[in-house]
Amino acid sequence: NQASVVANQLIPINTALTLVMMRSEVVTPVGIPAEDIPRLVSMQVNRAVPLGTTLMPDMVRGYA
């Protein structure tokens, strides 16, 4: 089972991601792999991401 990136807090739209906003968790469906967390830092979300939501590739500008 692969860990995915999950929002550690509410992340408002257009917010640049920081390490404290994300955690890794084994979830279904699988989202962005946890090993990509360092790559996600400073990328912006293109929608509001509620606490506990799995980050999907289409939620992060420039990721996919």
Rank of each mutant, 00 (worst) to 15 (best):
R61F: 15
N1V: 15
N1L: 11
L19P: 09
G52N: 15
I37W: 03
L10G: 12
L10S: 15
S42L: 15
Q9W: 12
I32V: 05
N8E: 11
A34P: 07
D36V: 08
A64Y: 05
A7V: 15
I11G: 00
Q2G: 14
M56Q: 10
Q44M: 13
G31S: 02
A48T: 13
T53D: 10
L55G: 01
I13C: 03
V49W: 02
L55V: 07
V5F: 01
T28N: 12
A3E: 08
I37L: 09
P38M: 09
M56E: 07
G52I: 02
D58P: 06
R47V: 12
N8C: 03
P38H: 14
P57E: 08
P29D: 05
A3G: 14
V60T: 02
I32R: 01
E25A: 12
R47M: 13
T54S: 05
V20D: 14
A34D: 14
T54W: 02
M43P: 00
S42E: 13
M21L: 07
V26M: 14
V49Y: 02
M43K: 14
S4D: 00
Q44Y: 10
V20M: 15
V41E: 10
Q9I: 07
L17I: 11
M43E: 04
M21V: 04
G52C: 03
V20S: 13
P50W: 11
N14P: 01
A48M: 10
M21W: 02
M43Q: 11
T53H: 10
G31P: 00
V45W: 00
V6D: 01
P29H: 05
D36W: 05
A7D: 01
V5W: 01
P57F: 06
N1M: 15
A64H: 06
A48E: 13
M21Q: 06
V41G: 03
A64Q: 13
T53W: 11
L19S: 09
V49K: 00
V49F: 02
I13H: 11
G62E: 11
I11C: 03
D58T: 12
S42V: 03
L17T: 01
N14W: 08
P29Q: 05
I32K: 00
R39W: 10
L10V: 09
L51S: 14
A48F: 14
V60L: 11
L10M: 08
N1Y: 13
I11E: 00
V30K: 13
N1C: 04
V49Q: 02
S4R: 02
G52R: 05
S4W: 02
A3T: 12
V60F: 05
E35H: 15
A48P: 07
L19W: 13
P12E: 15
G31I: 01
A3L: 13
D36R: 06
A7Y: 01
V60K: 00
L55Q: 00
L40N: 01
T53C: 03
N46T: 11
I37T: 08
V49M: 06
L51M: 13
A48Y: 12
Y63I: 05
M43R: 08
V60W: 02
S4Q: 02
E25C: 03
L55I: 15
A48K: 14
L55E: 01
L51Q: 15
R61V: 15
R23L: 05
T28W: 12
E25K: 13
R23T: 06
N1D: 09
A16W: 13
V20G: 10
V45N: 03
A34W: 07
